[in-house]
Design a binder for these strands. Structure first.
Lengths: 362, 362
DNA sequence: AGCTCACCTGATACCGGTACCAGACCCGTA
DNA sequence: TACGGGTCTGGTACCGGTATCAGGTGAGCT
């Protein structure tokens, strides 16, 4: 099918013809490079204006090898966490003249590989990725991008097997702080609503850690933070108090229900994700319990809703926008010629204390 | 700067050389068109595999004139409504082999124009836009895209001045239904948390409508729905019960506070946006009032939080994912050769009744 | 007046694909 | 044996820009 011209807008040649100058002169004027006399420049500009010329950035990218586009790979655009992060990326890259292509993986590593290939094929200048990869055998796709000269910056999740810039928060520390807060209020039976997609509930601490190191980086860190806090307070670890398996709200409801039905039931619950919190809230209601009187609650990922709940929820707020903005900035700096620092850029999360934590049995 | 080859991956010529065949033969094999004998095909494939060849989609787009990319313009990626919508767009376009470039306008028409130009320059195949444009003098940018052969599909917001496919919900009807529900419960003093960015609070119904027709389409429709319901019930319109001005949560708090302090105060509040609901909740708490006992509440845009509030909130749920998915589908069909229907595709919203509505003074 | 040189312009060869088309080759048939 | 026709391959002209570089022009100097 011949591209039916006359449709897609005038080309530089047509502008040149209209202005009565050579193609190169029109190109220099419109491309803003090289020298053109004021007179010809004016004529070219007039012709371009008249014809409604717009540069074809595809063609420009072809010859310069630069697309002024960043690729971003996240788990799910629909998730408010990633949506906020994306806004950070988008804001700072637009400000520097870069556009953003977004791809979702839904936590599937194969999707992540496919997404990376799409971005390589589209010749994006750089990639920001919240990767589900961990081990050496899972990073070939990212290596491939780097080998092709496309810089990669990690965001939200570090990839231990890769020595790259990563913009993250200190998940371990954030989790520890939250659990410490619970312990400080007097809790010793603290549920951990977590959820690596393992088939069998790990019975020992060792198995748990092993599962953690095979799954999402953030999740593993948060588990370690939970264990840190327990250890520091000499509270024995009880595997019945951690939820594993797919992190659907449904499952959270039943799992927290289970923890609530234990003889020595849970008096506090720490949730690593939004769905964990909503699920826990549901489970509480089903059990006829209320917070913070019967159960104390702390969760990850603050939102405007958490503050208007009654009582308002104590939450760990991640700097979502900054996470994205910083990742974009690091990447853009590398594209600008800066040497990659290959380090963890750790942003501060904040524990926002509201009213979902009280001493047990109060 | 010479694009330092050897970096960006092998080209078709290099694969052809490696396989010892002509460029065209390698191209046909790798591009999957034309005829190639099984033997040569195998050799080319082997060479491509060995070299790690990946097609340059930029180059392909250049010669075919098709980029397999959709552009999406929304007000704010960080807003859960648009994030969900985007996920719908992204899911269905990925399934059909299209990628998505996302741009945010933050409700600024100039940003929308800039975004449209970026998409034209990048030669996207089609555009999905939640436009802030209304009148004939505001749609030049969308016309420009169409004139260049780039089909445009509207989503969330119709543009009266343009005869295009639009995928929306019936905002007027949704608002009317919600307000009717309030009226059915016995309310007659119903606040409308709305907010066209007008300087002066309109004193008359006429002025209000005028302001509405100069601002966001969805907002205008929702106002009309509110008025419809009042009219049907013969409830006189009171301008003091509608909030205008920027829709920040802060302003909502003070405005709803004002309505709550009126001698004949509001006994129900209808919110057209999420921030309106959180703001209203705050205002209630500040006034020492609770829902649904003192004030009934209905809002737009359901979320998982609304269901776990205590009491849970009655909400209008928009089919966010479907909105995006349908818009992408309509656009993709047009790109596939279908004649644009140029009609409103109206999706159903649902009023999810929970427990934030009770009779006044109960 | 003649020469140099800086200044300016436009041919032209890329970028990495697609797609048209000429022609080589092989087979069967008259 | 010559010829027609189908099969298969590779040369090459695009797509719309960028960037290099040869050469034309005129000013300034001797």
């Amino acid at each position: 099918m011949p591209t039916d011209r006359g449709q897609a807008g005038p080309t530089i040649s047509e502008v040149a013809a209209e202005a009565g100058v050579g193609r190169a002169t029109a190109a220099r004027t419109l491309g803003g490079y090289g020298y053109v006399s004021p007179e010809l420049r004016a004529r070219v500009l007039a012709a371009a204006e008249k014809l409604g010329y717009r540069a074809n950035r595809l063609a420009r990218s072809m010859s310069t090898g630069v697309s002024h586009t960043l690729g971003v790979i996240v788990a799910d655009i629909g998730n408010p966490f990633f949506a906020g992060l994306l806004r950070g990326v988008s804001d700072t890259s637009r400000a520097r003249g870069f556009d953003v292509i977004v791809l979702s993986t839904y936590e599937d590593l194969r999707e992540e590989v496919a997404a990376t290939n799409v971005l390589i094929d589209k010749r994006v200048d750089g990639v920001i990725v919240a990767s589900a990869a961990l081990g050496r055998d899972q990073v070939a796709h990212l290596r491939a991008a780097i080998d092709r000269g496309i810089p990669v910056v990690l965001v939200d999740r570090a990839v231990p097997a890769l020595d790259l810039d990563a913009v993250v928060i200190d998940n371990r520390d954030a989790a520890r702080e939250a659990v410490e807060r619970l312990i400080a209020a007097g809790h010793r039976r603290i549920g951990f609503v977590w959820g690596p997609p393992v088939a069998q509930a790990p019975a020992t601490r060792r198995e748990l850690l092993a599962a953690a190191s095979r799954n999402l980086w953030t999740d593993g860190e948060r588990l370690r933070g939970y264990l840190d806090a327990l250890d520091d307070a000499h509270i024995p670890f009880d595997p019945r108090l951690v939820m594993v398996g797919p992190k659907t709200e449904e499952r959270v409801v039943t799992e927290v229900g289970r923890m609530l039905a234990l003889p020595d039931r849970v008096t506090a619950v720490f949730c690593t994700e939004t769905d964990g919190m909503t699920g826990s809230l549901r489970a509480l209601r089903q059990a006829g319990l209320s917070y913070p009187r019967d159960v104390a609650l702390i969760g990850f990922d603050d939102s405007s809703w958490a503050a208007v709940m009654d009582p308002p929820l104590t939450m760990i707020a991640q700097p979502v926008h900054e996470l994205g903005a910083k990742a974009a900035q690091v990447l853009l700096d590398i594209l600008g010629g800066a040497e990659p620092a290959r380090e963890m850029h750790t942003l501060r999360s904040r524990l926002i204390e509201r009213a979902s934590v009280a001493p047990p049995g109060s």
